[in-house]
Each structure stands twice: as structure tokens, then as C-alpha cells.
Simulated assay, not measured.
Amino acid sequence: MDLRIDDLSVDLGGARIVRRLTLDVPDGQVVGLVGPNGSGKSTALRCVYRALGPSAGRVLLDGEDLTSMSPRSSAQRVAALTQENGSDLDFTVEELVALGRTPHLRGNQPLSARERALCRSSMELLDVAHLAGRGVLELSGGERQRVLVARALVQEPRVLVLDEPTNHLDVRHQLDLLSLLRDVGVTVLVVLHDLNLAASACDVVGVLSEGALVDAGTPEKVLTPALLREVFGVEATVVPHPLTGGPQLLYRLPPSRKNSR
């Protein structure tokens, strides 16, 4: 399913947070949004999973305006992992994962055998099946993050929207998750802070600064020393990864303040 953010603007508290953002996320591709803190990445994502309405512009799924769909219909197409996924309710892991089926169920309709199998396979895929009977509040941050990704996959979305999904994950699970995003076969829009992870996992990278899109394209095209200096204020050398050939960023620390006194 194609996702298009079309001339999107968002005003919050009297300030324009997102400025006329247009970005295409083609069917089956992984598109990453990167940018400094406060650049509007998460705000743009909130419009895609309908936690926030845009002040102007549209979000389109295969050309259809998201706001023309019922909440149930859009939730059957778009699943989200947000930064505000905490819960005060101590569901078990398997109960929380099963909630991903909610948009597809009516009333108290029980899960079918296929849906129960889907929950088990998603938990196995995210390496949390052994936690099925544990309370979610007992889990570490990384374990809970993987449970929430499993819940999103159980939703069987056509579009997967993830805001900093590698938060709290150790290196192995970061790499496993980003590899999964490339293999899962759905359209993915993901916010990442780690530019090297974005370079490795994304087909296209969109760079935001002060709410506006600075550039979008392949990691090789976009992640240049000049852009890193302009947008992020850092000095970096870009080198080819020795195994994949993709761009990898080597940062230079700023001069020590102690030595400059």
C-alpha cells in the first residue's frame, strides 16, 4: 500500500511544528525520517496514525484520504508503535499482543484459531514467546518494546508506523528488528535517531529540520558531510561499510572545552 504525506502542516500551541511536508512511502519500502530533536518527526507520524489532525494537507493511503475512513477501517490498514506506549494495566504479554486484533473483531468476539496462531508466531518472531504469561509491568524496557512490535504485527497492517522503535533495545535486538522491517513485506515509515541504523535499514531517508523537509532520497544521496553539518551541526566522514558498501558515518568530537580554556 502506498502512503503519501501531501503538503502537511501542523500547528500546535500557536507554533507551526510541521511545514508543508510532502513525502512518498512506496508500497513495501522502508522510509526513515531523521532530524534533530524538535524537528517535527514525531508530530508528522502522529498525523499518519490519526492521533493528531493536520492543520493543512492530507495523508493518503493508495490515494484515499485517511480522514475519509472510519477509525476501524484505518486501524485495519495502519499500525503504530509510538513513544507513548506505556500502560498502567498489567496485562500479560499474550493478552497485550492479542489486543492487536481489536480492529478486526466485533464486540467480545473471541480470537479464532488462526488469530491465536498469529499471536504465537509474532511473539516468536520478536523473541518474546517465553514471556507470554508474564505481566507487562514486570518487563524491562527492551522486552516491552519487542512485545509492542509483536502487537503491531498481529494487527496485520498494510502500513507500519514506528517512532523510535530501537529505543531500549540492545544491539542484537536493534539489528533483528530493523532486519525484520525490511522482510515483513509492508510499507514502513520509521523515525530513527541513529543515522547509521537509518542508513542500513532504509530504502529512502527524509531529513527534517525546523518542521520542513530538507532532502529525501537514498541514504547515499542524502547523508553527506555537508548535510550533516548544516542540519545536525556535526562534522562527519562518510565511508562505505566494508560488508554492504552502504554509507556509514564516522563522527568527530568537538574540541574539548577543557583544552580551549
Rank of each mutant, 00 (worst) to 15 (best):
R20C: 11
N196L: 08
V30E: 06
F232C: 09
Q155C: 10
Y251S: 13
E124R: 15
S55Y: 04
L148K: 01
T92G: 05
L3P: 06
I17P: 01
T244D: 07
A44R: 00
H130E: 14
Q109L: 05
S70V: 07
G246P: 07
S87R: 09
C119V: 15
K221D: 13
P110S: 08
R146L: 14
L105T: 08
R116V: 12
S200G: 03
S87K: 05
R101D: 12
P103R: 02
E230W: 01
P103F: 02
K258A: 15
G38S: 11
D11V: 14
S260M: 15
S87P: 07
A212K: 00
L197W: 02
E230R: 15
A132C: 12
T166P: 11
L89S: 01
V78P: 04
H130Y: 11
A113K: 11
D170E: 09
L99R: 11
V34N: 01
C202W: 01
L181G: 03
E210V: 05
G100A: 11
L105N: 01
R116Y: 03
G38H: 11
S55W: 12
V147W: 05
V31M: 04
L23D: 01
F91L: 12
S42W: 05
D163A: 02
G14P: 03
L180C: 08
A132W: 07
T218C: 09
V59N: 00
A132T: 10
A51I: 04
M1T: 04
Q109G: 10
T43Y: 04
G28W: 02
Q76L: 11
R4L: 15
L23W: 04
T22W: 09
C119N: 11
V136G: 01
E94S: 14
V204M: 03
L249W: 06
L45T: 07
V190S: 00
C47V: 14
S122F: 01
L125D: 02
L23H: 02
A56G: 14
V154D: 00
V238F: 02
H241L: 12
V184E: 00
S140K: 07
V31T: 15
